[in-house]
């Protein structure tokens, strides 16, 4: 093997690949099982967007908090939430991350600093300002990351939070996951400014735009602004341009997309393939090593589905518990 030209160790590169492959396998399996009718409810897949969550989350520890979106599976996996618990949650089982009470749109694991996927657009931004405020008050060098879609970036809660974080100099990073669409509506139409960097500037914080399908670009940019926030330098905005491989939610026929658009994006901008090819070409990791990971991940997801299907349903009495701490 030749010398490693990347700013990550071989172990970290393998870790990144494994995370991205896990997200991909998880989502593609949901796509298949949803079509079979096995999975109830609204399911929004993160496939195609894996480099963003992974490149960012590699800079975080359990003490750092994230606030996610309706498209949250990738954020969960990258933040270390247990894949078996996630799958069981999506299947509505008592072994789920939220004991079956939350479902796909509300997976959370507070012990991992994962403050929840969210069914309300823009809701994560104020919450993460609070998480960052708590970190600042505690003085534990924790940071808060909120993810927001291009569509949800037009919510008042998000825009107010940019200002609040700047005014209070909070250790927050606002990650705009720009996949070009909000449901069926194009970002080009719905977002009035030319660039999110301009928006950030208007709120008095630095903004950076990266190709969100390029794991290395995300990793590098996120590393810098997260370090800055951790050291008291204040908030920043990171726009990741990315691609959505499936519909807005499962069951979306996507007639608003041009014919061939998804196929072309899959062929030219598949972040997982791009990461794999780069590390193989550089001679840092052998194809067989990645294939071994692929096999392990496939087995993991298969086992998660098997376990979820075999797990018990919540008991009737569970309907009435968990509303209050004490009442």
């Amino acid at each position: 093997m030749t010398e490693n030209p990347f700013p990550l160790s071989k172990d970290d590169l393998l870790r990144a690949y494994r995370t991205m492959r896990t997200i991909r396998e998880f989502e593609e399996r949901l796509h298949v099982d949803f079509a079979k009718g096995d999975i109830p409810g609204f399911v929004h897949l993160y496939a195609g967007e894996e480099a963003c969550a992974t490149g960012i989350m590699m800079h975080l520890n359990d003490n750092d908090r994230i606030a996610s979106t309706h498209r949250g599976h990738g954020h969960c996996i990258a933040k270390g939430v247990d894949v078996h618990a996630m799958m069981a949650e999506i299947y509505g089982r008592s072994t789920g991350a939220c004991r079956g009470k939350g479902g796909s749109m509300h997976i959370a694991d507070l012990s991992k600093g994962m403050m929840g996927a969210n069914g309300i657009l823009g809701a994560g931004a104020p919450l993460i300002c609070g998480a960052a405020l708590a970190a600042k008050v505690r003085g534990d060098r924790g940071v808060g990351i909120t993810f927001v879609g291009d569509g949800a970036s037009n919510q008042g809660t998000f825009l107010e939070s940019l200002n609040l974080a700047a005014v209070w100099n909070l250790p927050v990073v606002f990650v705009v996951e720009n996949n070009g669409y909000a449901e069926s509506t194009a970002m080009e139409w719905a977002v009035s400014c030319d660039s999110y960097v301009d928006r950030a500037t208007g709120f008095g914080m630095p903004g950076v735009t990266v190709d969100g399908t390029d794991f290395f670009a995300v990793h590098e940019a996120a590393g810098e602004i997260i370090r800055r926030a951790r050291e008291g330098g204040g908030p920043a905005l990171l726009e990741c341009n990315m691609v959505r491989f499936y519909g807005h939610f499962e069951g979306d026929a996507q007639t608003y997309r041009a014919k061939g658009e998804v196929e072309a994006l899959r062929a030219s901008r598949d972040c997982l393939v791009m990461l794999g090819e780069r590390v193989i070409e550089a001679g840092v990791i052998a194809r067989a090593e990645l294939q071994a990971i692929d096999g392990e991940v496939a087995a993991l997801i298969e086992d998660a589905v098997r376990a979820a299907k075999a797990a018990p349903l919540p008991a009737a009495g569970d309907l009435l518990t968990d509303v209050y701490v004490a009442y």
């Binding site: 909000a182 509506t185 608003y256």
Partner: peptide
């Protein structure tokens, strides 16, 4: 409303959603 027409600004079919 949101997506009550659908596909606004996009390059596929017009009136793509007609609401969620």
């Amino acid at each position: 409303g949101e997506d009550i027409v659908g596909g606004t600004g996009a390059h596929g079919e017009a009136d793509a959603w007609g609401g969620v």
